[in-house]
């Protein structure tokens, strides 16, 4: 029997992106998200596309005989892909839960074409913040003197540390990354050769993740 599963490419909006590219994008996004102190733009369109692909595959697989060796192999691959997606989403939720107020505030400053949170995440973040606020008010804040009852002042301090150090690989040549000096050294400018690996602060290379020049490892 001809194996036609997986030959269907994903038609994303007007674009025709092959399934393996969608998968690669998700894998890269997963690793970037894992190691980045900040919350990166959501890849939810890719996530949805891949979930559809997985569903399609699973439906197709039910048509095959259980003893067909391909069944187990396909299921294994699907389990692997599901793991990447769930780990990706879980990492994002953890960040949202940790820095809720900051992330929501940042989101309001962004243009609607460039959201960092998916719709689901945005709703979750708002609900979570409301729950936290209510919890703190009931437990503590309503019992303290009025000048100190402001919930938001406690939330101000929970922000991601953009000065954290991260490991990265340069996917192409990048010139002129400025490394901040300290009290004893001056600022330094470095070039990142394609395929070289580095450890450095997140801040100077933050924009390079967005344009795909570097990959966090």
């Amino acid at each position: 029997m001809e194996d036609t599963f997986g030959e269907d490419d994903y038609f994303g909006e007007d674009e025709h992106i092959p399934a393996h590219e969608v998968l690669q994008t998700l894998e890269d996004a997963w690793l970037n998200e894992k190691f980045c102190p900040d919350l990166l733009p959501s890849q939810d369109s890719y996530v949805e596309a891949m979930m559809e692909q997985i569903q399609q595959m699973e439906d197709n697989l039910t048509k095959l005989k259980k003893t067909d060796f391909r069944v187990e192999v396909h299921h294994m691959e699907l389990a692997r892909i599901r793991y990447i997606i769930t780990s990706y989403l879980r990492t994002r939720i953890e960040k949202i839960e940790q820095n809720t107020a900051f992330i929501l505030e940042q989101e309001t400053t962004r243009s609607p074409e460039n959201p960092h949170l998916s719709e689901g995440e945005l709703n979750y973040a708002r609900e979570f913040l409301a729950l936290q606020e209510n919890h703190q008010k009931q437990l503590v804040l309503k019992h303290v003197p009025p000048p100190f009852q402001d919930f938001m002042s406690t939330q101000q301090s929970l922000v991601p540390n953009l000065r954290s150090h991260i490991f990265l690989r340069a996917k192409k040549d990048v010139n002129g990354v400025v490394i901040e000096g300290d009290r004893d050294t001056r600022d330094e400018e470095v070039d990142l050769e394609e395929n070289s690996q580095h450890i450095m602060q997140y801040k100077p290379i933050a924009n390079l993740i967005h344009d795909g020049s570097v990959q966090l490892i």
């Binding site: 102190p37 990492t91 953890e94 960040k95 406690t154 101000q156 929970l158 991601p160 540390n161 954290s164």
Partner: peptide, 9 residues
Amino acid sequence: LCQSYVPNY
């Protein structure tokens, strides 16, 4: 998440 310690509220 494995963020390094930063003092917070």
